[in-house]
Design a protein around this nucleic acid. Structure first.
Length: 330
DNA sequence: ACCTGTCAAGTCTGG
DNA sequence: CCAGACTTGACAGGT
């Protein structure tokens, strides 16, 4: 099994490369010239995209094939103060540059819209905002020229005292989304409401791939093991990817999991700086026979710094062969 | 240069 | 029923 590793949004290795610079709504509102203020937002967005490109170059130099874009590339987008603003016209060039680099080097990229995107909500306004947010994430990927292999990963949402009803609402609201948005979505189990088993059932119901988060599963489950769910999780990925000429028989879109370790002494749900190799390797060994390729997204405070340390730790372990700086073979 | 408080969002809990 | 906690990276304003 080939396992590739990636990290989220920002680097702790490359300095001064934030892809999430912003402006507060308050300071935007204080500016007298609205047009000039909007141009400033667009400059910040172009800078975020430029830094994203810098990070992608760093990823390439480090053999990191997997990367999650920041959801804050365009500051204040979707805010009511900016109603009517179309940031894509001014940003088509930098978006296209990022996408071109991703395609050229065959990187796997994604977004993770914030947890305010909640399709299980009973509130009309929240649902509308969620659909609009998903639409904007889709629009960013489209502006990059990336096909449906670039996914938007979300959670199911809250339960509102009745998980069954919330799940049914999720299904209704999901199926009401435009198809081009739907086919970009992956669903991830969360750490306090929808378990991996429950999320998987919803994925099967609406036909969307499941991203298994091992840490969330460890703190939110009903006694079932992640390994026991794995064959069904694998199946949700079967037709998720678009074949590309360069796929060469490998899965177009390998299944993806999230890993992080609990922070010492804090809430068990909090993320630690680094990721422990032991428990991850145990899981990988169990699924290896059925899984030719796997992508692993690290959700650790130290980001790519944690990735490099994990690679060092894994390389010392029995039965692990290091393929390059960011992938191993089991 | 550094420190502290604030900002965004939605859900859930405590009072 | 409302206020605060939760989470996160970065702004904003102070020294």
């Amino acid at each position: 099994m080939i396992v590739r590793f990636g990290y989220v949004a920002m680097s702790t290795v490359v300095s001064q490369a934030s892809p999430s610079k912003t402006m507060t709504a308050t300071s935007f509102a204080k500016l007298e010239d609205r047009e000039a203020a909007i141009r400033k937002l667009e400059r910040i967005a172009a800078e975020n995209l430029h830094n994203t490109l810098r990070l992608l170059r760093h990823n390439r130099a480090s053999d990191i094939h997997l990367y999650r874009f920041s959801s804050k590339l365009i500051p204040l987008v979707g805010h009511e103060l900016l109603a009517g603003w179309d940031p894509f016209a001014a940003l088509s060039e930098p978006f296209a540059q990022v996408g071109e680099y991703v395609r050229l080097h065959r990187m796997r990229t994604s977004f993770h819209p914030d947890h305010f995107t909640v399709l299980s909500t009973p509130r009309r306004d929240v649902l509308d905002n969620s659909a609009a947010d998903l639409g904007r994430h889709h629009a960013m990927l489209t502006a990059m020229g990336l096909n449906r292999n670039a996914k938007c990963n979300i959670h199911v949402g809250g339960s509102y005292g009745d998980k069954q009803a919330a799940g049914e609402r999720f299904i209704r609201h999901f199926l009401a989304l435009p198809w081009e948005v739907r086919e970009r979505i992956t669903l991830e189990n969360d750490d306090k409401t929808f378990t991996a088993a429950e999320t998987l059932a919803l994925c099967e119901e609406v036909g969307t791939p499941m991203v298994l988060d091992l840490h969330h599963h460890a703190v939110n489950n009903d006694g079932e093991s992640a390994v026991s769910l794995w064959p069904r999780i694998l199946r949700t990925w079967e037709n998720a990817g678009m074949d590309e000429p360069e796929s060469l028989g490998l899965p177009a879109l390998p299944p993806k999991i999230h890993v992080s370790s609990p922070r010492e002494g804090k809430d068990v749900r909090a993320h630690a700086d680094y990721v422990e190799a032991g428990p991850l390797l145990e899981f990988l060994r169990e699924i290896a026979p059925d899984t030719p390729a796997l992508d692993v997204m690290l959700e650790a405070k130290m980001k790519d710094g944690a990735l490099f340390r994990l690679m060092e730790d894994l390389a010392e372990m029995q039965g692990v062969r290091q393929v390059d700086q960011a992938s191993v073979e089991l």
